[in-house]
Design a protein around this nucleic acid. Structure first.
Length: 261
DNA sequence: CTGCAGGCCCTTA
DNA sequence: TAAGGGCCTGCA
């Protein structure tokens, strides 16, 4: 299936830090989500071949990639604020989107992500999926693992956080109904979820665009380029998307200087 | 061998 | 409320 998509770059999305299960193999992008495995080929920028049926595309991937949302219009709105650095970041990351990922899966991905590097995060997640043919395990499937199992899968000291989270059986459907601040407060009651991780979960798992995850990169940007005072109040309902543009732009400077990435 | 990676927890003051 | 040490593991 050939699709022409606006404001969409699979490569940018894959490297935006919101998702750990999109990987490139030769010229094919492999996406694991919604208990499915999808392959995507970029024919040329903006034109993609999706290796799935029309039905699957409409029922799963159209939603997953948030294709009903007009990012072009949103970007224009943000640009009207006239923030020079942010506008450059938007032009650079013009193909970014915020995926609609499974909230339970996102909770665990970002629980694992703390004080960790991306290759290792991905490896741990693959270890968790390995017994289930690559599909991320459900809450009940995770019940069968012991603390030791998680340690052996490479979680390190985070193993006890995951074990405790699973034993508490978070009610994802109830969490999805909470407004932003209440959701953050609730998420932070779980061991191993602090402010940064809670904001990642709210944004990437629950579609709460008010969330603005502050990691080391964002803190660096705010300190160096905004004199330690970023006007987040100007971007209330699109704060999370703004975070993605800033994060992705700043990270790009590192990658050009670092061949190993 | 150090230092550190998309933080968080716990203890002190 | 702020500051600081410790933490699993893998990889420069």
């Amino acid at each position: 299936m050939i699709k022409t998509l606006q404001d969409f770059s699979i490569e940018q999305i894959a490297n935006s830090g919101q998702c750990f299960r999109i990987n490139k193999h030769d010229d094919l992008w492999e996406v694991w989500a919604a208990k499915q495995r999808l392959e995507i080929k970029e024919i040329e920028p903006g034109i993609y071949e999706f290796f799935c049926s029309e039905k699957e595309f409409e029922e799963i991937w159209f939603n997953y990639f948030d294709l009903s949302r007009n990012y072009g219009r949103i970007k224009e709105e943000i640009k009207k604020q006239g923030d020079y650095y942010l506008n450059k970041a938007i032009d650079f990351g013009r193909g970014l989107r915020i995926l609609k990922q499974d909230p339970w899966e996102v909770m665990i991905h970002f629980l694992i992500s703390q004080q960790n590097n991306i290759p290792r995060i991905k490896k741990i997640i693959e270890n968790l999926c390995q017994p289930f043919d690559g599909v991320f395990p459900s809450m009940s499937e995770l019940q069968q693992f012991s603390l030791k199992d998680f340690e052996e899968k490479g979680l390190g000291y985070r193993a006890k956080y995951l074990k405790a989270l699973i034993e508490q059986k978070p009610d994802v459907r109830a969490l999805a109904k909470l407004p932003y601040q209440e959701l953050i407060n609730k998420l932070k009651t779980y061991q191993g979820i602090g402010d940064k991780v809670a904001n990642c979960i709210a944004l990437f798992g629950f579609g709460q665009w008010e969330a603005f995850p502050r990691d080391v990169w964002i803190n660096r940007i705010i300190k160096l380029r905004y004199q330690d005072d970023f006007p987040i109040e100007k971007f209330k309902n699109v704060a999370g998307l703004v975070q993605q543009y800033l994060f992705f732009y700043e990270r790009s400077f590192k990658e050009t200087n670092n061949v190993s990435l």
